[in-house]
Amino acid sequence: MGKSRFLGEFEQYVLLAILRLSEQAYGTTIRQVLFDVIQRDVSIGALYTTLTRLEEKGLISSRLGEATAERGGRAKKYFVVTGEGKRALNDTRRSLDAMWRDVKLSFVGVSK
């Protein structure tokens, strides 16, 4: 992996969305999962910028599907998380879990 062995928040969300979608992970479906699960409305441009960066880092790979008439003859670009991407997710999760260990948050005046 590049400079850092830990992922940023949005990178984690995108990788997890791809894993959730399995064989159906392409731009529109990834964007929909982000909205449905974490209520984050992401522009398709911002999503593809992140997807490109993750692919350049070797954390995901892509393939083109068949061209379809409903897309004006364009093919969908499908994404899959690589082994390196899974390792990066796992390393990031372990580091966050370690940082949260023994942390107690108190909320004065806030009901549970």
Score class of each variant (00 low, 15 high):
Leu47Arg: 03
Arg40His: 12
Ala75Ile: 06
Leu89Arg: 01
Thr28His: 05
Glu11Gly: 02
Thr52Pro: 00
Val81Ile: 08
Gln39Ile: 05
Gly27Thr: 09
Arg63Ile: 07
Ala75Met: 05
Leu19Asp: 06
Gly85Cys: 07
Gln24Ala: 13
Lys112Glu: 09
Arg53Cys: 00
Ala46Gln: 11
Asp102Thr: 10
Val80Arg: 08
Arg5Ala: 11
Asp102Asn: 14
Leu21Asp: 04
Gly109Lys: 06
Leu34Gly: 06
Ser111Leu: 10
Asp102Met: 06
Lys86Pro: 00
Val42Tyr: 01
Arg40Ala: 11
Gly27Ser: 12
Val80Leu: 06
Arg53Pro: 00
Gly2Leu: 09
Leu34Gln: 03
Ile44Thr: 08
Leu47Ala: 05
Ala17Trp: 00
Thr68Gln: 10
Gly72Cys: 09
Leu47Pro: 03
Arg31Tyr: 01
Asn90Val: 09
Glu23Phe: 10
Ser95Tyr: 12
Leu7Glu: 02
Ala46Asp: 13
Asn90Arg: 12
Ser61Ile: 09
Ala98Met: 08
Gln32Gly: 01
Ser95Cys: 07
Arg87Pro: 00
Asp102Leu: 06
Leu105Met: 10
Gly85Lys: 01
Glu55Lys: 06
Gln32Leu: 09
Ala67Asn: 11
Glu11Phe: 01
Leu64Tyr: 10
Leu59Met: 06
Leu15Pro: 01
Thr92Phe: 07
Ala75Lys: 09
Leu16Glu: 15
Val80Ser: 11
Glu84Tyr: 04
Ser61Met: 10
Glu23Leu: 10
Gly45Met: 09
Leu21Lys: 04
Thr29Ser: 15
Glu56Val: 05
Glu55Thr: 05
Gln39Thr: 07
Val33Gln: 03
Lys77Asn: 08
Thr28Ala: 11
Ser111Arg: 11
Leu59Gln: 00
Ala25Glu: 04
Leu19Ala: 04
Trp100Asn: 05
Asp102Ser: 11
Ser62Gly: 05
Glu56Trp: 03
Arg5Lys: 15
Thr68Gly: 03
Tyr13Arg: 13
Lys3Cys: 04
Ala67Phe: 04
Arg31Asn: 14
Gly73Thr: 08
Val42His: 00
Met1Phe: 04
Val37Ser: 08
Tyr13Val: 07
Leu96Ala: 13
Ala69Glu: 15
Asp97His: 08
Ile30Trp: 02
Arg63Glu: 14
Lys104Thr: 14
Leu64Asp: 10
Trp100Gly: 00
Leu34Thr: 06
Gln12His: 03
Arg87Tyr: 07
Arg40Leu: 15
Tyr48Asp: 07
Ala25Ser: 13
Val103Leu: 14
Glu23Tyr: 11
Lys86Met: 12
Gly45Asp: 14
Arg20Tyr: 08
Lys77His: 07
Lys57Gly: 04
Ile60Gly: 00
Lys112Gly: 04
Thr68Ser: 12
Ala98Gln: 09
Thr29Ile: 02
Asp97Cys: 08
Thr50Pro: 00
Gly85Arg: 01
Gly109Leu: 07
Lys112His: 07
Arg31Val: 03
Leu15Cys: 03
Gln12Lys: 14
Asp91Thr: 11
Ile30Met: 04
Gly8Lys: 14
